[in-house]
Design a protein around this nucleic acid. Structure first.
Length: 988
RNA sequence: GCCCCUGUGGCGAAAUGGUAUACGCAGCCGACUUAAAAUCGGUCGCUUCGGCUUGCGGGUUCGAGUCCCGCCAGGGGCACCA
């Protein structure tokens, strides 16, 4: 389009686009010019307090407020960007530029999260080494982002695959491995629980102040190295465990719970996931469950994300209770977990998970007269139990979903004795009880739990109701009996008299108590009788931390001939990946649940076997062949922006304190952290939880002085798009679809044929992608930025519509024309004084736009800038004193045109650090306002009055204005909110 | 099933409990053009001209898009967690 304009001017005598109009070509020239200037002058370099990055182009850190604005860094995937991707980057950039103009020292940079599945899969597809494709992708992404005019400090960019970065990722792993969680020590923030070096635990074992698990009564130094290693493994925050994990044959790797969907499939690739018992690395995130919930109160995050984290961690309070189980003439102990100890009187059977160790001790034969439904037709309990266990193991999460709550289970032949009633309860095994939650065993209370009720109905077990609705609730227990349990936590306890004094003659009667009080009473009783205690349980599981992939960080761990793990000394880090031709993961038939993972690194024997001197002479060791999950690099990258080339520290203390310390900025709270972190909500329980966990460990160990990584989190919305399908359901290119009106209805056609419109994501397969490059070519970066920022609130999703972009272009053209003559290219502003109206509008606009920028609402800021600009457009000669502040206010959103106009207005320095305009209070507000007279809330008259009108006078005027409507009757009530509203309630 | 968010013109959207529809797109009318595009100016919720309008029905209030209760629709999170 615009190209034709230029040609037309050269080749025909028809009136053409004026030579100095702000066209797409003009925009492109201006944008490239300023991007070069910013780069060569280091305009966006942020100044550190010390070290090599103190140079902020004459703007040093001393005494200046810091502001750290950060995006969730991207995977450099080969797919390239579409216009939806950079929405968050643009938002962060607008905020960064605004804060820079407020005089703050702004840290804003971009790194690349380059390990992990997307990069590896792209490499496998293209047959090139992931390092090569990753570096190409990073270069392409850098180019596209640079063209957007983002104000990054390019000295601080890095990728997580760089050896100098990997070194510190491995260093952090080493610190986590070398630490344990002491729940009895206060951490530096004052709350209970603290990670401490493992040496402090060894000291306790050695001093005999802590019993050694499994070796009670022995001295620490009597234990073999293997035994010591196993004991410590039970405490380390990064530990090896043989436990059921999510095994995904289709991807050839194990996955964390967070990476498995509710349907039991892999989040990436959508392959089936099976539970397999495997030896893998885990991180003890459950130790931090409580602090991860509690500290949410100290950070400025969307409630939605906080809620998702709270739900994911799933802290529940209750009690653990010990039931005696007669086994082979002795009394074994079975511990159960319940959130409702008050219902102990209503327990009519027990259930253990199919993996529960108690199942090793089932009796030889079924008791006399056992119900055949309970035995499943098996001849002995052990046959029944092992058959059921096999059945449960083969089930995928998807099967469980398909079961739709249908309960299965079998009797174990065992009985458990209820410690409070003495009742003998049959013990079942069923897969609705999970081994890795609570204790893997429950007391079943069918009168108060839907699942237990379903099970009881199926197996003909008794139901005892122990809780009734509150008497004044209008509900009646009779509504539940025989049909459903009464599950509410509101209610009163009934029916606790069931032999309550059996246990030890203590009277414990709960009748008439509210549930809360009854829970407390039973918990106290359990503790006094030493058969149980208050307990907290978490839905959160420990974080499975190893993957069988090539493209990730190797573990800084080697094993000796006894398979005892040893930490590789810090001085030998990083451990780099071997440069080998075969980096593909070993994948299997997605349905082959019996396959086992095979780490690609294990194929490189040269790399696997090493001779090291770890203090007792050179010995042969072998490397751990797993790699870390792709979350590892993103867990701590924010700190690396502070100085990505620091070879002495993960992060330097003074630098951390200046940029992220708890009191560095009024914007940050007590918890400290990055001032603004912008990214998609999809990481709510993945990256954002892992990152907080690592950060808290580093805080406990004293490496950082704030206990949260991200003070303010902002989730940008998604940019959605229309897609079109023809009558065969095939997608057609959205770009070429025509829109027209037929009989007042909008119809869409492609090559003359009608097509259906649907609404959703932007994607290549939907043929509705719009790329940033398309936008640069057709409108320029400033118009692109302006459109994305004006579409609506940043945190809401909305549809992209290229047709609407032109409005932003017109605004910039008018702004340009208000400064520059389109025909001569001369600056046309006047130095005349502003008229009163312009002065008022200008100062009101400054005040309002400042407010919108503070609140991160660029859409409404833009609307107000347009109003001011439109006003100036109508003037005869635009006053410099009005247009200069306008240019400054446009700068965060459309920085290139703003720099160009600022320069042409006679300023030599970039406006990037020019002070943000200040509103003159004398001209803020209105002289006259339209006062509205309402009768019963409906507008009946409007009055033009002075802004400082006396309320009594306004009331008088208002009553006069609507006298006719009041019909002479005195009003019953008059509310005056001068100068805007008079609200009248008429007399009867 | 449980929890959370969102419903305002033809479209994207504005509105500290105080004039609903700012700003932009599209549309319509006009100016400049031989013409078209671009640009500029105007107009732009519905209406039987009484009024009526923020998904629907109630409530609180002098006054509700905004607060409360109950529905409906769309989106998201969790889902045998004892």
């Amino acid at each position: 389009m615009s190209e034709n304009d230029t040609n037309a001017q050269a080749t025909s005598n028809a009136p053409a686009t004026p030579q100095y109009r702000y066209t797409t070509e003009m925009a492109q020239r201006i944008e490239e010019k300023w991007q070069d200037i910013w780069e060569s002058e280091g305009t966006f370099w942020a100044a550190n307090v010390s070290g090599e990055l103190t140079d902020g182009k004459g703007r040093h850190a001393d005494g200046r407020q810091s502001f750290f604005a950060m995006d969730m860094f991207p995977y450099p995937s080969g797919k390239g960007l579409h216009v939806g991707h950079p929405l968050g980057y643009l938002a962060t950039d607008v905020v960064s530029r605004y804060h820079r103009m407020k005089g703050e020292n702004v840290l804003h940079a971009m790194g690349y999260d380059a390990f992990g599945l997307p990069a590896e899969q792209y490499a496998v597809q293209t047959g090139q080494h992931p390092r090569i494709t990753t570096e190409q992708n990073i270069a392409n992404m850098r180019r596209q982002l640079r063209r957007m005019g983002l104000s990054f400090d390019d000295r601080r960019s890095f990728a997580t695959i760089e050896p100098e970065y990997v070194r510190w990722t491995q260093w952090i792993f080493s610190r986590i491995y070398d630490a344990w969680y002491d729940p009895e020590t206060r951490n530096p923030s004052g709350s209970m629980g603290c990670a401490r070096p493992i040496s402090t635990l060894i000291e306790q074992f050695r001093a005999g102040v802590r019993p050694i698990d499994g070796h009670e009564g022995k001295a620490w130094d009597e234990l073999t190295e293997v035994e010591q290693s196993e004991v410590l493994n039970g405490y380390r925050l990064a530990y090896i465990s043989k436990s059921p994990v999510n095994w995904c044959p289709g991807l050839g790797t194990v996955l964390a719970n967070e990476e498995v969907t509710a349907e039991g499939r892999s989040e990436r690739g959508n392959f089936p996931v099976f539970q397999r018992e495997l030896r893998q690395w885990s991180m003890r995130i459950t130790a931090y469950g409580h602090r991860l919930i509690e500290d949410l109160d100290s950070i400025d995050w969307p409630e939605k994300v906080k809620l998702m984290q709270r739900n994911w961690i799933g802290e529940s309070h209750g009690a653990s209770v010990h039931f005696k189980v007669p086994v082979d003439g002795e009394m074994a102990d079975m511990e159960i977990y319940t959130t409702r100890p008050d219902t102990l009187f209503g327990a009519t059977f027990c259930v253990v998970s199919p993996e529960h160790p108690m199942l090793e001790h089932v009796p030889q034969s079924w008791p006399e007269g056992v119900d055949p439904a309970w035995t499943g037709g098996y001849a002995t309990p052990s046959e029944a139990v092992s058959a059921y266990r096999e059945l449960a193991e083969a089930k995928t999460a998807a099967d469980r979903v398909a079961d739709n709550g249908e309960k299965t289970g079998l009797f174990t032949g065992l009985y458990a004795i209820n410690p409070i009633t003495g009742a003998k309860l049959p013990v079942f095994t069923a897969d609705y009880v999970l081994m890795d939650y609570g204790t893997g065993a429950i007391m079943a209370v069918p009168g108060g739990d839907q699942r237990d009720y379903d099970f009881a109905v199926k197996y003909g077990l008794p139901v005892i109701y122990t809780v009734a609705p509150l008497p004044d609730s209008g509900d009646d227990l009779a509504n539940y009996e025989g049909t459903a349990p009464f599950v509410s936590h509101d209610g009163i306890v009934i029916n606790s008299a069931v032999d309550a004094t059996w246990a030890r003659g203590d009277a414990l009667c709960l009748d008439g108590m509210r549930v809360d009080d009854a829970i407390a009473a039973v918990t106290t009783w359990l503790e006094e009788a030493q058969v149980g205690k208050g307990a907290t349980s978490y839905r959160l599981r420990d974080w499975l931390f190893s993957r069988q992939r090539y493209w990730g960080e190797p573990f800084p761990i080697v094993y000796d001939e006894h398979e005892v793990p040893h930490l590789v000394p810090d001085s030998m880090l990083p451990i780099n990946l071997p440069d080998v031709p075969d980096y593909s993961p070993k994948t299997f038939d997605p349905e082959d649940s019996q396959s086992s993972p095979e780490a690609p690194l294990s194929r490189n024997e040269d790399w696997v076997n090493v001779t090291l001197d770890l203090g007792d002479g050179p010995k042969t060791y072998h490397h751990d062949t797993n790699t870390m999950p792709n979350w590892a690099g993103s867990c701590w990258y924010y700190m690396r922006y502070l100085n990505p080339h620091d070879t002495e520290h993960m992060v330097e203390r003074d630098e951390y304190d200046y940029w992220m310390g708890p009191k560095h900025s009024p914007a940050a709270g007590q918890a400290g952290g990055v001032d603004l972190y912008v990214g998609g909500v999809e990481h709510a329980v993945l990256h954002l939880l892992y990152s907080r966990f690592w950060h808290k460990i580093l805080f406990d160990l004293g490496y950082v002085d704030s206990f949260e990584p991200f003070h303010k989190l902002f989730n940008q919305g998604m940019i959605q798009a229309y897609a079109y399908t023809d009558d065969r359901g095939q997608y057609v290119p959205a770009e070429d679809v025509q829109e027209s009106e037929v009989d007042g209805k909008t119809v869409y056609t492609y090559e003359g044929e009608p097509v259906n419109r649907e609404f959703g994501k932007m994607g290549k397969s939907l043929k509705n992608i719009v790329t940033p490059d398309y936008m640069y070519d057709h409108y320029g970066a400033d118009t692109f930025r302006l459109y994305e920022m004006s579409m609506g609130p940043l945190d809401e999703s909305r549809p992209w519509n290229t047709r609407n972009v032109v409005g932003g272009m017109r605004f910039l053209q008018r702004l340009w024309r208000n400064v520059i003559d389109e025909n001569t290219g001369e600056v046309t502003v006047t130095d005349d004084a502003m008229d009163e109206r312009t002065l008022k509008l200008l100062n009101n606009t400054i005040a309002e736009v400042t407010g919108e920028m503070e609140a991160m609402r660029p859409n409404t800021a833009i609307a107000k800038l347009i109003v001011l600009n439109n006003h100036l457009t109508g003037m005869n000669g635009v006053p410099r004193a009005a247009v200069e502040p306008l240019v400054l206010m446009v700068a965060p959103i459309a920085p290139h045109i703003a720099e160009e106009l600022w320069n042409r207005l006679g300023h030599d320095e970039s406006l990037a650090h020019h002070p943000w305009p200040q509103a003159d209070d004398r001209y803020v507000g209105q002289d006259t306002v339209t006062a509205v007279v309402q009768i019963k809330g409906k507008v009946r008259a409007k009055l033009e009055v002075s802004a400082d009108i006396d309320p009594d006078e306004l009331e008088k005027m208002a009553l006069e204005a609507v006298a006719e409507r009041l019909g002479g009757k005195p009003p019953r009530k008059v509310i005056v909110k001068a100068p805007k509203i008079v609200s009248i309630v008429p007399g009867e």
